[in-house]
């Protein structure tokens, strides 16, 4: 596989997974930025296991998922039913706390970072294929899970919570239980993604996990469309890939172009490019069915 293609695909996959990790709790109106902190926690932990304790990568990756789930669950115990603003504050605070802890932990390189992560499988080529295979598997599995979730009772309950929490509660939706579920799954995805993110670069540095990463995921979700996972799939490669094709003279204006596009989209199409209605239309078109969905939630519209 050509090297640029590998980096493009693998980093795009990471961006999709991170964005999905934010998308899922946003189904109940939680902007759960703790996912970025979880990427760092699991990533650094897995790197430490591999480098210091010589744990095989597979176990370190599983530990990353488990740690992500554990942290997500513990935090969700307290903010599973918190308002959106409180969840945002907790997420930002958590990022600060995690960065400060890592900065002061010599075992994981402190401010210097962790260098020289080994090739999985012993050589760079195998390493790349293993990373790609795991990322592809995670994308399929997570995408399938999100699809099933969105089409399940839980997904409909989440839509109800998104629109009106009190109304959803009066309909018997367990607000806290649902919030805890989506937050924990979100953090599990983020944990595994964080491990893979560092192993793509074969190093970890605190500045891999900054608010810029939150910005990337937010742009992907809100420009792509926050009501369906497909918006993320469409926008992540565009947002990351198209600027790479810009000539150098335009590269310098990249941030301005991003900002302009974001403003235009938020003004003209605040729900993002890919909406539920669009996905439903595409599904009908592809299946040849002319069945019309007449009932759409406010969020879907």
């Amino acid at each position: 596989m050509p090297l640029p293609l590998y980096y493009f695909l693998s980093i795009t996959a990471v961006n999709i997974l991170l964005s999905w990790a934010l998308y899922l709790p946003y189904r109940v109106a939680h902007l759960h930025f703790i996912t970025v902190a979880n990427m760092a926690i699991s990533g650094y932990s897995a790197a430490w296991l591999v480098m210091s304790l010589h744990v095989p990568f597979g176990w370190a990756l599983l530990a990353g998922f488990a740690l992500g789930a554990l942290v997500g669950w513990i935090v969700a115990l307290f903010i599973g039913d918190a308002p959106t603003f409180a969840v945002v504050i907790v997420g930002f605070t958590f990022i600060f706390i995690v960065r400060t802890v890592i900065e002061n932990l010599p075992a994981v390189g402190a401010t210097m970072g962790i260098f020289g992560l080994p090739n999985i499988g012993g050589n760079p080529e195998t390493h790349r294929w293993v990373i790609m295979a795991i990322l592809a598997g995670m994308l399929l599995l997570t995408g399938f899970f999100l699809h099933r979730f969105d089409h399940s009772r839980l997904g409909r309950a989440a839509s109800a919570v998104f629109v009106d929490k009190d109304l959803a509660a009066s309909l018997g939706v367990n607000i806290k239980g649902l919030g805890m579920l989506v937050q924990t799954v979100s953090c599990t995805i983020a944990g595994g993604t964080g491990v893979l993110y560092g192993f793509i670069y074969k190093s970890f540095h605190l500045d891999f996990f900054t608010f810029a990463l939150v910005g990337i995921a937010m742009t992907i979700i809100f420009v792509g469309g926050y009501a369906t996972p497909w918006g993320t799939v469409v926008l992540a490669p565009i947002l990351y890939g198209v600027p790479l094709l810009f000539p150098p003279a335009i590269q310098e204006w990249r941030i301005v172009i991003y900002g302009g596009v974001l403003v235009i989209v938020l003004v003209l199409k605040p729900e993002g490019f890919i909406t539920r209605r669009f996905v439903a239309t595409m599904e009908s078109f592809l299946s040849g069915s002319r069945k019309k969905r007449n009932i759409l939630t406010k969020e879907e519209l």
């Binding site: 640029p4 980093i11 793509i200 540095h205 500045d207 990337i216 600027p243």
Partner: peptide, 9 residues
């Protein structure tokens, strides 16, 4: 880092 790695590649 994302852009740097792809450009280096």
């Amino acid at each position: 880092p994302q852009k740097g790695s792809t450009e280096m590649a």
